[in-house]
């Protein structure tokens, strides 16, 4: 049986590419224009009810309550750190002090009762506050793994700005 082929002459069917390329380039331009490299963000969680919970008697606490105060100059630059009675000279030293106080062993409940109240001068720049929160809340071990230190962090009552 003879098969009839209408395209005996081998006609080439040409697709119209121009509209597709137009749209594709418009999409490409849209994505390039809206593209923005954003670095990853993370949170430091703090729980601060308006009425501060009554602290447990010191003898019932595994760690005595810690107080941290950050001093600043008029520009908001950090000028001093006071942790209880000691005065670490850097956030790294503060981090080591905290490690000495609460330990770095990962036993359950070891650091859960540790609590710190952070106070600072009104003008202190927020980046230093986060630096202090970083120093007290954890550290990284030699393998780069996070070791948590103090999880219960609260801020003290704000003081009036210096005139």
């Amino acid at each position: 049986m003879e098969i009839r082929n209408a395209n005996k002459a081998g006609q080439k069917i040409e697709l119209q590419m121009t509209p597709m390329i137009d749209i594709v380039f418009q999409l490409l331009v849209f994505f390039i224009m809206t593209f923005k490299i954003v670095s990853m963000e993370g949170d430091f969680n703090i729980r601060m009810p308006a009425a501060a919970p009554q602290a447990a008697p010191p003898e019932q606490m595994e760690f005595p309550p810690m107080k941290l105060y950050l001093s600043a100059d008029a520009d908001g630059t950090l000028t001093g750190i006071q942790l209880n009675e000691s005065q670490p000279t850097s956030f790294q030293a503060l981090n080591q002090e905290i490690q000495k106080l609460v330990g770095t062993d990962s036993g359950p409940g070891a650091r859960e009762s540790a609590e710190i109240e952070i106070g600072f001068d009104y003008d202190l720049r927020y980046e230093f506050v986060i630096g202090a929160v970083t120093a007290v809340s954890g550290t990284k071990d030699t393998r780069g793994e996070l070791v948590k230190l103090i999880e219960k962090i609260r801020f003290n009552t704000p003081e009036a700005p210096a005139e």
């Binding site: 963000e41 993370g42 000028t79 000279t89 956030f91």
Partner: peptide, 24 residues
């Protein structure tokens, strides 16, 4: 309940663990 948001520091975590300026 609050969350203080910060940017992940991938280069050097010790950026803010710098000594307090002398005389401070």
């Amino acid at each position: 309940s609050f969350a203080l948001r910060a940017e992940e520091n991938v280069n050097n975590g010790l950026k803010y663990i710098s000594p307090i300026p002398a005389g401070g």
